[in-house]
Lab assay of single mutants.
Amino acid sequence: MDVFMKGLSKAKEGVVAAAEKTKQGVAEAAGKTKEGVLYVGSKTKEGVVHGVATVAEKTKEQVTNVGGAVVTGVTAVAQKTVEGAGSIAAATGFVKKDQLGKNEEGAPQEGILEDMPVDPDNEAYEMPSEEGYQDYEPEA
């Protein structure tokens, strides 16, 4: 019985440690998101679009440190934060509304985080759909 109880105690310690790591990862992701939003706020009209992409990228980098179902929630929060940063930029006159959601080359930025393969159960990952990809044929 002692062996059984000791095993359960060790398992509990492992769960607590994993929860603490997840909590730490979420806190880091939130900190990076805040950094990115402050970065966007300090940019001029020309830099705002690039700044919004930076927020998304920093958040995406930190999301990889967070495991399990938390990833889905962090990704949703990050996307809403990026959308909010863009709205703030438009409201303050840093950028025109028609410039939001495009990178410096004018290509749409939507789907940055949505296409990231995420499995809350950590069982399997699927690649994003290939609808947006084109076949590449090298020139002879």
Rank of each mutant, 00 (worst) to 15 (best):
Asp135Asn: 12
Lys23Ile: 00
Ile112Val: 15
Glu28Arg: 10
Lys58Asp: 15
Gly93Arg: 02
Met5Ala: 10
Thr72Met: 07
Pro128Phe: 08
Ala30Asp: 00
Lys43Trp: 11
Val40Trp: 03
Gly73Lys: 12
Lys10His: 05
Asn65Arg: 11
Val77Asn: 01
Glu83Lys: 04
Asn122Lys: 04
Val52Pro: 01
Val82Trp: 15
Val15Ser: 02
Lys32Arg: 12
Val74Asn: 01
Lys80Val: 10
Leu8Gln: 00
Gln134Asp: 10
Met5Trp: 14
Met5Glu: 01
Leu38Thr: 15
Glu83Val: 07
Ile112Ala: 03
Tyr133Cys: 01
Val70Asn: 00
Asn65Ile: 09
Pro120Arg: 13
Ala18Asn: 15
Ala29Asn: 08
Pro117His: 09
Val82Ala: 02
Val82Asn: 03
Thr54Asn: 01
Gly31Asp: 14
Asn103Leu: 07
Ser9Asp: 12
Ser42Thr: 14
Val26Gly: 01
Val70Glu: 15
Ala85Glu: 02
Ala29Pro: 00
Gly93Asn: 06
Ser9Gly: 11
Tyr133Asp: 12
Ser87Ile: 15
Val26Pro: 00
Gly31Trp: 05
Asp115Tyr: 07
Gly101Gln: 14
Ala19Gln: 07
Phe4Ser: 00
Val48Gln: 00
Ala78Val: 08
Glu20Trp: 11
Ser9Lys: 13
Val82Tyr: 06
Ala89His: 12
Val74His: 00
Ala76Met: 03
Ala11Gly: 12
Thr44Ser: 09
Gly14His: 09
Ser129Val: 11
Gly25Lys: 07
Val16Leu: 05
Glu105Trp: 03
Glu46Ile: 00
Asn103Trp: 08
Glu131Pro: 11
Ala30Asn: 02
Thr54Cys: 01
Thr75Ser: 08
Ala29Val: 13
Asp2Met: 05
Lys21Glu: 01
Lys6Thr: 13
Gly7Phe: 11
Glu105Lys: 03
Lys43Leu: 07
Ala27Val: 07
Tyr136Ile: 06
Ser42Asn: 03
Tyr125Ile: 09
Ala124Leu: 14
Ala69Ser: 10
Ala11Lys: 02
Glu137Arg: 15
Lys96Asp: 08
Ala27Glu: 00
Leu100Val: 15
Thr33Trp: 03
Glu114His: 08
Lys10Thr: 03
Val3Phe: 03
Thr64Gln: 11
Glu123Leu: 13
Lys58Tyr: 13
Gly41Arg: 08
Glu137Tyr: 05
Thr59Arg: 04
Gln134Glu: 01
Leu100Asp: 15
Ala53Gln: 12
Glu83Asp: 05
Thr92Pro: 04
Tyr125Val: 08
Glu28Ser: 13
Gly111Phe: 12
Gln99His: 08
Asp135Ile: 07
Phe4Met: 11
Ala78Arg: 13
Met127Lys: 06
Pro120Ala: 09
Lys58Pro: 01
Glu123Ile: 13
Glu61Gln: 06
Lys21Asp: 04
Glu28Met: 09
Ala76Asn: 10
Val95Asn: 08
Met5Asn: 06
Gly106Thr: 12
Gly31Arg: 09
Val37Asp: 00
Asp135Gly: 04
Lys58Gln: 08
Pro120Asn: 09
Asp98Ala: 08
Tyr39Asn: 15
Gly73Asn: 13
His50Asn: 08
Glu131His: 13
Val63Gln: 00
Ala140Ile: 00
Asn103Phe: 05
Glu35Pro: 02
Val66Met: 05
Val66His: 03
Phe4Trp: 03
His50Tyr: 08
Ala17Pro: 01
Val82Asp: 01
Gln79Tyr: 11
Ala29Lys: 06
Gln99Glu: 13
Ala17Phe: 13
Gly93Gln: 06
Gly36Asn: 09
Val63Arg: 02
Thr22Cys: 15
Pro108Phe: 03
Val77Cys: 11
Lys12Arg: 14
Val37Met: 11
Ala17Lys: 13
Glu35Tyr: 12
Glu13His: 03
Glu105Tyr: 10
Thr33Ala: 10
Val77Ala: 08
Met116Phe: 09
Gly7Ser: 14
Asp2Ile: 01
Gly106Met: 06
Thr64Ile: 08
Val16Trp: 09
Thr75His: 07
Pro128Gly: 09
Met127Ala: 05
Glu114Gln: 15
Gly93Thr: 05
His50Val: 04
Lys34Ile: 12
Gln79Asn: 11
Met116Asp: 09
Ala89Arg: 14
Leu8His: 00
Lys97Asn: 12
Val77Tyr: 09
Asp2Ser: 02
Thr92Val: 05
Glu137His: 09
Ala90Leu: 10
Glu13Gln: 07
Gly31Val: 12
Lys43Asp: 00
Asp135Met: 02
Glu104Ser: 14
Met5Leu: 00
Glu123Thr: 04
Asp119Trp: 13
Asn65Lys: 08
Lys21Ala: 11
Leu100Gly: 15
Lys97Met: 08
Ala11Pro: 03
Ala89Pro: 04
Gly25Arg: 03
Val3Asn: 06
Lys34Trp: 14
Gln62Asp: 02
Gln24Asn: 07
Pro108Tyr: 02
Thr81Asp: 01
Ala53Glu: 08
Gly7Gln: 12
Ser129Trp: 04
Lys21Ser: 10
Tyr136Lys: 09
Val48Ala: 13
Gln62Ala: 07
Val55Ile: 14
Gln62Glu: 12
Leu8Pro: 00
Thr81Val: 02
Ala140Met: 09
Val66Ala: 11
Val15Arg: 01
Asn65His: 09
Pro138Cys: 13
Lys102Pro: 01
Gln24Cys: 02
Val40His: 06
Glu130Asp: 15
Gly41Ser: 03
Lys23Met: 06
Ala124Tyr: 12
Glu131Ala: 13
Lys96Val: 07
Val95Ser: 03
Glu131Lys: 10
Gly36His: 04
Tyr136Trp: 08
Lys45Gly: 04
Glu61Asn: 01
Val74Lys: 03
Gly93Asp: 02
Asn65Ala: 02
Ala69Phe: 09
Asp98Glu: 09
Lys10Asp: 01
Pro120Ser: 10
Glu137Val: 05
Val37Leu: 06
Pro117Trp: 05
Ser9Cys: 09
Lys6Glu: 07
Met1Glu: 00
Glu104Leu: 14
Gly68Ile: 07
Leu113Gln: 07
Thr44Arg: 00
Tyr133Asn: 14
Val52Gly: 00
Glu20Pro: 02
Val55Asn: 05
Gln99Gly: 13
Ala11Thr: 15
Ala85His: 02
Glu137Asp: 08
Val49Gly: 04
Thr64Phe: 04
Pro138Asp: 14
Gly51Ile: 15
Asp2His: 15
Gly68Gln: 04
Val26Asn: 00
Glu123Met: 02
Ala89Lys: 09
Asp121Gly: 08
Lys10Gln: 10
Gly84Glu: 04
Thr75Ile: 15
Lys21Ile: 13
Ile112Thr: 04
Tyr39Phe: 04
Glu46Cys: 06
Ala140Pro: 12
Leu113Thr: 08
